[in-house]
Simulated assay, not measured.
Amino acid sequence: MLEQLEAIRERFEEVSQQITMPEVVSDMAKFKRLSKEYKDLEKIVNQLNAYKNILSNLEGAKDIIANEKDEELRDMAKEELDILTPQKEEAEAILKEMLIPKDPNDSKNVILEIRAGTGGDEASIFAGDLFRMYQRYIERQEGWTMTLLDHNEGTSGGYKEIILQVEGEDVYGKLKFESGVHRVQRVPATESQGRVHTSAASVAAMPEADEVDIQLNMNDIRVDTFNSSGAGGQSVNTTYSAVRMTHIPSGIVVSCQDERSQIKNREKALSVLRSRLYEMELAKHNAMIADARKTLVGSGDRSDKIRTYNYPQSRVTDHRIGYTVYNLPNVMDGAIDDFIEQLRIADNAEKMKEGLGT
């Protein structure tokens, strides 16, 4: 492990020199890529330095115990040894996790799509509840921002469909585990008999694809403009600002109407289209890995039932890892960190066990 870590330190020093070179600073794409690499490597190097400091102190304590004649100093060294030994084990565990091959998409922004599934109006209301849950979660993340790209409201509240762009650090790395079918069990407001109904909504967290990830041929895309039906006053409904794009080879249709400017709606629609095409390829890759690991944690398949929100029992269960909490109001207010952390741990454990990268 130490050989790998020393190689990382060498690369860190190399990158730290490169990002100061004028030819790199003037190349925005290269500078951005190297800056991201520098930031990632810096975390590992800092942890390595802390680990080496613990090793040095351990050696010093052992040396005192072995050679020092002063009993008081030897007792102090033994106490220090008792403190440093678990610190060493913890630091080693952190370094091992840092050496697990990272998903190259983890640092990307996300196109988040929430769609009502089975359950009629109640499914749309639940999709709205999920949107608010993610909105609260995003608000709690330092430096994250959310932009509404498109939405289609339900007839009794909530959304039939809502599409968001989430930007920030490690967005896909955290939200990727949310893809799949979310199921709700509760008594709908329209239920006169007080019976519990089951409804569902699907979530797709897609890494936002760059132009270098997916090269789009505009000859393959049909663009239609239409009057926006969203909020925004008279001008929204009297100009053809909304954009619908159809990718002819795949049949994927994307629309965006939340900006007053047609140009901005075109840009956002292109971003969603590029990300959906990228996700198609990513889904195939993830399915192969999930099959190899015999787990759904990393599959990101939006057809898999991943989580149940049971209102009568105030229970939320993630079926992929069998993790349950009994504090549903807190979860619906955006406290999903525990689920994300448990899923990340399970995914890393699988990678370490099978020796598979993403």
Rank of each mutant, 00 (worst) to 15 (best):
residue 8 I to A: 03
residue 15 V to H: 02
residue 182 H to G: 07
residue 80 E to N: 13
residue 89 E to S: 09
residue 310 N to H: 15
residue 209 A to V: 04
residue 156 S to N: 14
residue 58 L to I: 15
residue 68 E to M: 09
residue 340 I to R: 01
residue 125 I to T: 01
residue 63 D to Q: 14
residue 312 P to I: 09
residue 276 R to S: 00
residue 181 V to E: 04
residue 116 A to P: 04
residue 337 D to T: 08
residue 222 R to W: 01
residue 123 A to D: 03
residue 112 L to E: 07
residue 84 L to R: 12
residue 224 D to C: 09
residue 110 V to R: 01
residue 125 I to E: 08
residue 243 V to H: 08
residue 281 E to M: 15
residue 316 V to P: 12
residue 347 D to R: 01
residue 42 E to N: 12
residue 239 T to Y: 02
residue 141 Q to Y: 06
residue 88 K to R: 12
residue 185 Q to K: 10
residue 234 Q to W: 05
residue 109 N to Q: 06
residue 267 E to M: 02
residue 111 I to P: 01
residue 39 K to I: 02
residue 44 I to C: 08
residue 355 G to S: 08
residue 249 P to V: 00
residue 149 L to P: 03
residue 230 G to Q: 06
residue 150 D to H: 15
residue 68 E to F: 00
residue 127 A to D: 10
residue 100 I to P: 13
residue 133 M to P: 12
residue 170 D to N: 15
residue 58 L to Y: 09
residue 322 G to C: 05
residue 237 N to W: 07
residue 342 Q to Y: 01
residue 237 N to E: 12
residue 352 M to S: 13
residue 182 H to R: 01
residue 93 A to P: 06
residue 24 V to D: 11
residue 140 R to Q: 15
residue 64 I to H: 08
residue 218 M to Q: 13
residue 97 E to D: 13
residue 202 S to E: 11
residue 192 S to L: 12
residue 132 R to C: 00
residue 6 E to K: 13
residue 240 Y to P: 01
residue 251 G to N: 11
residue 56 S to D: 12
residue 293 R to P: 10
residue 244 R to T: 13
residue 113 E to G: 04
residue 272 V to K: 02
residue 91 A to T: 09
residue 303 S to F: 10
residue 155 T to P: 00
residue 51 Y to P: 11
residue 306 I to S: 11
residue 333 D to V: 03
residue 292 A to E: 15
residue 110 V to F: 07
residue 295 T to E: 14
residue 315 R to T: 07
residue 151 H to V: 11
residue 151 H to Y: 15
residue 113 E to M: 02
residue 336 I to T: 10
residue 355 G to Q: 05
residue 78 K to V: 03
residue 220 D to R: 04
residue 21 M to P: 07
residue 178 E to N: 04
residue 187 V to Q: 04
residue 75 D to S: 11
residue 281 E to R: 14
residue 306 I to A: 05
residue 81 L to V: 01
residue 291 D to C: 04
residue 350 E to F: 06
residue 266 R to I: 12
residue 329 P to H: 06
residue 138 I to H: 03
residue 238 T to I: 11
residue 187 V to H: 02
residue 45 V to W: 06
residue 83 I to W: 08
residue 187 V to G: 04
residue 346 A to V: 06
residue 305 K to A: 14
residue 29 A to K: 14
residue 283 A to I: 00
residue 224 D to I: 13
residue 170 D to Q: 10
residue 120 G to R: 04
residue 284 K to M: 07
residue 153 E to F: 00
residue 85 T to A: 14
residue 143 G to C: 04
residue 186 R to C: 03
residue 312 P to N: 08
residue 69 K to Q: 15
residue 24 V to F: 03
residue 344 R to T: 14
residue 328 L to D: 03
residue 150 D to C: 02
residue 252 I to D: 05
residue 153 E to W: 06
residue 13 E to P: 00
residue 141 Q to A: 06
residue 35 S to P: 09
residue 178 E to C: 08
residue 209 A to T: 02
residue 162 I to Y: 01
residue 302 R to I: 11
residue 25 V to T: 05
residue 80 E to L: 08
residue 326 Y to S: 07
residue 228 S to G: 15
residue 53 N to L: 10
residue 156 S to L: 12
residue 8 I to W: 06
residue 40 D to M: 09
residue 196 V to P: 06
residue 299 S to E: 12
residue 321 I to M: 01
residue 3 E to S: 11
residue 207 P to A: 02
residue 32 K to C: 10
residue 327 N to A: 05
residue 248 I to N: 13
residue 336 I to R: 00
residue 207 P to G: 09
residue 159 Y to R: 03
residue 44 I to K: 05
